[in-house]
Write a protein that binds this DNA or RNA. Structure first.
Length: 490
RNA sequence: GGUCUCUUGGCCGAGUGGCUAGGCACCGGUCUGCAAAACCGUCUACUCCGGUUCGAGUCCGGAAGAGACCUCCA
């Protein structure tokens, strides 16, 4: 690999050189959504962050297997024994089969991801499709003595595990502190310790989602699915595990414990965590009632939104911040992102209009290498974007007549923009192309030709009227020396 | 309460011992019949208090404020 990628490993809290276990193959597992509600802004961040990583790894020449799961069972409302499964709860409220809920919201999630130009993962496994494997892993953990059965449920014995290994190494927690600080929750009677977590839960009589097992008719614990499905598809040890920072504890900590307890070694080599999106400085959360669904963003229907924001605006907005920083949402910030992105796309388009000169008189200064360097420095997309903006200035000033670019350099700019803007950052021009687009184009050209005629008669009242009305509809009119240009803004 | 993180200009957001981040907004100019777009230019920073250093927004210590996790969340 000609570019050396370093990524921040949460396990060591350092940037580390990324060296795959079995190059050129590399495995990436990311915690996907629990499909019990519409996808929201918070889902977009890990999806886009790891889509970026997926795209970049592929671009560096790795053969990437990207596994992103769908959680459709076992994710409880809280950690108490009485906690209800999120999917089951939604099913009960809406009087549907749990799998109808799963189907519905999985499709909603996929549609939103498509709009955001998030590539499909290589494999998208479901927890409910891996019940047997989960049971096998539970048995392994039981056999190794790190779990216990109680009334048909199986729990992970954290205290015992901690005697041989270190529970809390990922999140920087110390078990003694946890013991001192964990709150007592109702219905924890079956656990030996409050921080023990369920591997298998016996289903109460009214619980619909249930599978037979040697312990009871029940369902697997939430943390288990990721341990099982990641190693099933990527091997006992694999390269990268990603997810949101909020999953660091307890979810990912439990995953490590499960893998070590079952197979005697850790499964994950690099842990990566994206930071949260905040709204007015506060984390978006279901319980806080301040979360915005992606559809609401795309349509501008949420009360916090002053306008609709296109999927690419959202994507660009997210990429303008580094994935490990919190990103604060506001209309102002999104509007800035919208304009900035348009500026980048416009500059790319105007490359086609530049006439090549014999030689280049502007500074190109190793744009391609600078972009690669920024990407390879723990996916520093804000820097990549800043470099592209520097080139926008170059392109525009040449287009405006100051300086010149050779054919080779125009091609280089086109290639670098295409590579980083479209292939790696995953942005795309948002055209409103429809079947009528050609007709529309002709109609608009007709209007603007009329305006030209009016202008030549110095009939500015008419010409302004045409332009103003078109602007009102959403067109952007630009007069040129020998004609006009127009675009239809979303 | 415990653990951890953050505090950059009007807004968003990089950087991390010395050299302009970038975007958006604003302002001045060029272009235009007027605009828009584009171009040129200007302005606005590093929470506070100590320390280390020739030099700190950047390292160390302290204070204040904010946030995250510890409980469902991406």
């Amino acid at each position: 690999m000609e570019h050396i990628l370093s990524i921040f490993n949460t396990l060591t809290r350092k940037k580390e050189l990324f060296v795959p276990l079995n190059p050129p193959f590399t495995g990436l597992y990311v915690c996907g959504p629990t499909v019990y509600g519409d996808p929201h802004l918070g889902h977009a961040r890990p999806a886009i962050t790891f889509d970026l990583l997926f795209r970049y790894l592929k671009n560096l020449g790795y053969k990437v297997r990207y596994v992103r799961n769908i959680t459709d069972v076992g994710h409880l409302e809280n950690d108490a024994d009485a906690g209800e499964d999120k999917i089951a709860k939604k099913a009960r409220i809406e009087q549907l089969e749990p799998m109808e809920i799963v189907q519905h919201y999985t499709e909603r999630y996929h549609k939103a991801m498509d709009k955001l130009n998030v590539l499909s993962p290589s494999i998208e496994p479901r927890a409910s499709g891996h019940i047997i494997e989960q049971q096998q892993m539970i048995q392994q953990i039981l056999d190794n003595g790190f779990a216990y059965e109680k009334n048909g449920s199986v729990y992970f014995d954290v205290e015992k595990y901690n005697k041989s290994y270190s529970y809390g190494k990922l999140s920087g927690r110390i078990l003694e502190d946890l013991m001192a600080n964990t709150r007592e929750l109702d219905g924890q009677g079956e656990k030996r310790n409050p921080f023990d977590f369920a591997l298998w839960k016996k289903a109460s009589p009214e619980h619909i989602m249930r599978w037979p097992s040697k312990w009871s008719d029940g369902f697997p614990g939430w943390h288990l699915e990721c341990s099982v499905m990641s190693t099933r598809y990527l091997g006992e040890v694999f390269d990268i595990h990603g997810g949101g920072m909020d999953l660091l504890f307890p979810h990912h900590e439990c995953e490590i414990a499960q893998s070590v307890a079952a197979q005697g070694k850790e499964a994950v080599r690099y842990w990566m965590h994206n930071n949260m999106i905040t709204i007015n400085g506060q984390k978006m959360g279901k319980s806080l009632g301040n979360f915005i669904t992606l559809d609401e963003l795309f349509n501008g229907t949420h009360k916090l939104l002053v306008q609709a924001y296109s999927p690419m605006t959202i994507r660009f907005f997210i990429l303008q911040a580094h994935y490990r920083s919190t990103l604060d949402f506001s209309n102002e910030a999104l509007q800035a992102a919208e304009k900035g992105m348009q500026r980048l796309l416009n500059a790319y388009a105007s490359l086609d209009k530049i006439t090549a000169a014999d030689k280049t008189t502007v500074d190109m200064a190793g744009l391609r290498q600078k972009c690669f360097d920024a990407m390879s420095d723990d996916l520093n997309t804000p820097i990549v974007i800043a470099h592209l903006f520097d080139s926008v200035k170059t392109i525009n000033s040449v287009a405006a007549g100051s300086g010149s670019l050779s054919k080779e350099d125009i091609d280089e700019l086109r290639n670098v923009f295409s590579l980083f803007l479209f292939d790696i950052l995953g942005l795309q021009a948002e055209t409103n192309s429809s079947d009528n687009s050609k007709t529309l184009e002709e109609v608009v050209n007709l209007m603007l030709n009329l305006r030209m005629e009016a202008k030549s008669r110095k009939d500015f009242e008419t010409s302004d009227k045409i332009r103003n009305e078109l602007t009102k509809i959403g067109f952007e009119i630009k007069d040129k020396k020998d004609g006009f240009e127009w675009t239809l803004k979303v």
